[in-house]
Design a protein around this nucleic acid. Sequence first.
DNA 1: TTTATACTGGACAACTTTATCCAGTATCTC
DNA 2: GAGATACTGGATAAAGTTGTCCAGTATAAA
Lengths: 154, 154
Amino acid sequence: MISSTGEYALRAAVYLAQHRDAPQTTAKIAEGTKVPAGYLSKILQQLVRGEIASSLRGAHGGFVLLHDPDAVTVWDVLTAVGAAPERIETCPLGIERHEGLCPVHRLVDDAVAEAQRCFSSATLATLVSSVDGMTALCEVAPALGLPARGGSRR
Amino acid sequence: MISSTGEYALRAAVYLAQHRDAPQTTAKIAEGTKVPAGYLSKILQQLVRGEIASSLRGAHGGFVLLHDPDAVTVWDVLTAVGAAPERIETCPLGIERHEGLCPVHRLVDDAVAEAQRCFSSATLATLVSSVDGMTALCEVAPALGLPARGGSRR
DNA sequence: TTTATACTGGACAACTTTATCCAGTATCTC
DNA sequence: GAGATACTGGATAAAGTTGTCCAGTATAAA
């Protein structure tokens, strides 16, 4: 559904949303998100270019989220790293003389549109807020001492 | 959203659904779907193994759809070639001590589930049936739609 | 100013996906 | 049976994605 790059970017963005107090180094983000550090640095660069994060060089430098977590959608993050599923605008078969899409590509595009809607309606703030004792990035909130149930699955 | 392989498989399956009268050779399917012939043959093999189509060797051989078009969902086709988006069952970060998914992966999995629902509810029969003068595979139904001009159909 | 820190950018390697080609084999028609 | 047709499977290559590494550079702190 989304590429590794998209997953990684999302994890990194959520991590930054969880740690807004100070710049986070690539190494720390990599540790906290379990993303390969070398590759993560490339992704963080893309987030900077996409104006999701900003970077600070030098000692005590690192990356910080550029905007409020509730102003950044998941879609924004995926788009910044080119991992957002793309709408189908024109016929993939290269046939030009028609308006609209055939049923096949209409169906696929509908699925893409649904994904876009889903990803656009969730912000980093949404993801960071704990749900059922579960925090983002698959960490269990330790303070709540959750009674480990399987209830959150549909 | 779906890989090239998935697109190709879907086009091929729709083509077979449109031509159930006789076995269709790889060459004919490739021409009708604009899929690279060499690669298409691999995909057709996967459709055979996945019991979407069956193959007939020798003269007048080719591929035929194994079941009724309304008994084959788009999801079935994508699954047969390993191109169906996969549900997230376990935590991608490898953290084991929790039930369910964190909000991040819950969100992504919801999008996957939506795509699955979308692709499962459409059958090849659905796609083949003409809509608004548009037939599957981005061809315009000649009788209904835009003024046909010679030569655009190869 | 010096030093340590940490991002930047490029080169490169590993891996996966996509694509091509061909010899081999099964099947149909005559 | 002979010949033509067309799938099968393997080898191989091209392209894209993911991942690593390192020298260069900017910045903060002492």
